[in-house]
């Protein structure tokens, strides 16, 4: 068996924001097929780490490699092509408020250029179906959508170019348990059918246990532990023990 492909590699990453260190010497690898959860306390820099993976935020020290290449390697076109292999779901959706849902999802497709309007229409329809939205929703403006629909629409846009790597920032935050379970199911299904690699930030233990096949715990400015959920839970560290104890009391985490 060949060694697993590394899609994202962070080497000795240090980040300083506003004069204090958020990350120190972070090493993390995301392998193809991972459903990697980033967990950690509020303000531990999970979202920052996610943004650094595709260069939305610069690291202070250290190196990030995406698909085996440095973030700034190659010319403008090569960098843009590399970005297009990644989909990013922002926490608030970040749908363009001046465009309809259809135009939001069609936007990345139009940016590629060369596609016929008819093809774009079919591709948008297929993305809408993928995230279980209906064609008649396509003419709505983002301000008219509910929170759950915004997440779905934003996911459809992130998937428009069928990326290999999907980064999700708090995919289930702000959704009720029912919708959140549905959204998790959706992402699991996409992972299986599209062969996506997913990295997501979450606070929600239900999301974590239902979605992740690998967990990285971020606390005290470093990665405390990486492994599968059961392995992580048995790590003897006060933060990890607390994290799972408090959550388990509320959620009654099923013993696996």
């Amino acid at each position: 068996m060949s060694p697993p492909e590394i899609l994202v590699e962070m080497r000795e990453v240090c980040t300083s924001l506003g004069g204090h260190w958020v990350h120190q010497n972070i090493n993390l690898q995301v392998e193809r097929g991972n459903l990697l959860a980033l967990v950690g306390g509020s303000g531990a820099g999970k979202t920052t780490l996610l943004r650094e993976m595709i260069g939305l935020q610069a690291t202070t020290l250290g190196e990030v490699r995406l698909f085996g290449e440095g973030l700034n390697d190659g010319h403008r076109a090569a960098r843009a092509a590399r970005r297009r292999r990644v989909g990013f779901l922002f926490q608030q959706g970040a749908l363009y408020s001046a465009l309809t849902l259809f135009d939001n999802i069609a936007f990345p497709l139009r940016e590629v250029g060369g596609l016929l309007e008819d093809e774009i229409r079919t591709l948008v329809l297929s993305k809408l179906e993928l995230v279980e939205l209906k064609p008649q929703h396509a003419s709505l403006m983002p301000a008219q959508l509910s929170g759950g629909m915004i997440k779905r629409a934003a996911l459809a846009r992130a998937l428009a170019l069928e990326p290999e790597l999907l980064l999700l920032d708090e995919p289930t935050a702000g959704l009720d348990p029912d919708r959140s379970a549905g959204f998790v199911e959706l992402i699991r299904g996409l992972h299986a059918s599209l062969g996506l690699t997913v990295v997501f930030v979450t606070h929600d233990l239900d999301t974590l246990s239902a979605l992740a096949n690998r967990v990285a715990v971020l606390a005290e400015r470093r990665i405390l532990a990486v492994g599968d959920l059961n392995g992580i839970r048995s790590v003897e560290h006060p933060f990890i023990q607390n994290f799972f104890r408090y959550r388990a009391a509320v959620n009654e985490l099923p013993e696996e």
């Binding site: 193809r32 459903l35 085996g68 992740a212 096949n213």
Partner: peptide, 13 residues
Amino acid sequence: MPEQPPAERPMQT
């Protein structure tokens, strides 16, 4: 944990 191994996708080119 995934039921089936995800499909292989190209790495570099």
